[in-house]
Amino acid sequence: MTGWHAPDDLVTRYADGSLPEADAWSLETHLENCGPCAVRVSHAARAGAAGVMLAQVRGAVLNAVREPAPATARTPAPATTQVPVSASAPAVPRGARAVGGRLARIAWAAGPALRGAWSAAVVLVAVGAVALAYGGGSASARPFLLAVAPIVPVAGVALSYGRHADPLHEIVAASPSGGLRLLLMRTSAVLAVSLPLLTAAGLLLPPSGSRLPAAPAAATWLLPGLALTLASLVLSGYVGCRNATAVVGGGWLLALAAPALSATGSGLTARLTQQLSLYFTGASLQGGWAAAAALCALLLAARRSAYDRLETM
């Protein structure tokens, strides 16, 4: 607890929902460690428009608890089947329950992508590339992985945020913890899964071989993938999350496929490898991707208020 306490106008605006998102987060952090301010916020909420509804809900709950449960006829079980609880199942330690509950909350906050088929698809891409290289003897495994890897986190963002992905999206996004904060948290979870897994798979892949041009290194896709993901977040503020990720992901695939398919004179794998080198290889190209990622991050910070009610209507 500190010597500072929230002013009355701040408490009132928080209770009626008119406090800006950043100030609401700051006040919620303060309330976790300040009992007097938490009591004042509780009183303000009860005195506001929601107070009547809260009182009705509280009264209904108390009435339901006080009423005796209806008696039901039950057939007594034989004495031989009555086993003490402690003997039938071992007690779960309180610490284990707390850890399990915390992990469940983290998994839920991480978003639908990590709980759905997207995580399995990422594993399938990584394992499939390694199996294609070693089991099938294919030289196209590394170009294929590098071509798909930058848009894998973009697809994860599309499956993590929005009405189409989360049945509770409107409720969660309208809360003080929603908006850009929730979008960035779920994007971070997607990146935390896809970046190390796909990079490790790229490191395990063998070289392209003497008949093909050298493919870019396994980690050269990281900055492009980060820049494309941030670009999809910026565009989401204008056209929505699903449309933005479709535009960014489709644009990347088109930028790779169109030159590789239109060129002639060598195999498709060689042309794709050459195209990837044009996008990934070289300090200047990597610096450009880093600058693009930084610019997108600045745009996100500048337009953070546009995400407060993103896809809530």
Rank of each mutant, 00 (worst) to 15 (best):
T2P: 07
W4N: 13
W4C: 08
W4S: 15
H5Q: 14
P7V: 05
P7N: 07
D9T: 13
D9E: 15
V11K: 06
T12C: 11
Y14A: 15
P20F: 10
D23E: 15
D23C: 08
W25E: 12
S26F: 11
L27C: 10
H30L: 14
N33Y: 11
P36W: 01
C37W: 01
R40A: 15
V41R: 08
A44G: 05
R46E: 12
G51A: 08
M53H: 13
G59Y: 12
N63Q: 15
N63G: 15
V65M: 14
V65S: 07
E67V: 12
E67F: 08
P70I: 04
A71D: 13
T75E: 14
A77L: 14
A87N: 10
S88E: 13
P90W: 11
V92N: 09
R94G: 12
G101E: 12
A107N: 02
G111R: 08
G111K: 09
G116I: 06
V127W: 02
G128N: 07
A133T: 07
G135V: 05
G137I: 00
P143A: 05
P143K: 02
L145F: 12
V148W: 00
V152C: 01
V152P: 08
P153A: 11
A155I: 02
G156L: 09
V157R: 00
V157L: 15
R163K: 12
H164Y: 06
A165T: 09
D166N: 04
P167F: 02
H169A: 05
S175Q: 11
S177K: 10
G178V: 12
G178M: 10
L182W: 09
L182T: 00
T187V: 09
T187H: 01
V190Y: 01
L191R: 02
T199R: 01
G202Y: 08
P213Q: 07
A214E: 14
A214I: 02
A215Y: 04
A217D: 13
T220Q: 13
L223S: 00
L223E: 04
L226G: 04
A231K: 08
A231I: 08
L233H: 05
L235E: 03
S236P: 04
G237V: 06
G237E: 03
Y238A: 15
N243C: 10
A246P: 04
V247K: 00
G250K: 09
G251I: 06
G251F: 05
W252L: 11
L254F: 04
L256D: 02
P259E: 02
A260K: 01
L261T: 08
T264R: 13
S266P: 08
R271T: 06
Q274C: 11
Q275G: 07
L276C: 02
G282Q: 10
A283M: 03
L285V: 09
L285Y: 07
Q286C: 07
G288K: 00
A292L: 13
A293S: 06
A294W: 10
A294S: 04
L295C: 12
L295K: 02
C296T: 00
L298P: 03
L300T: 05
L300H: 11
A301G: 04
R303K: 12
S305A: 14
A306G: 01
A306Y: 12
Y307C: 11
Y307W: 00
D308E: 13
R309C: 09
L310P: 03
L310I: 13
E311R: 10
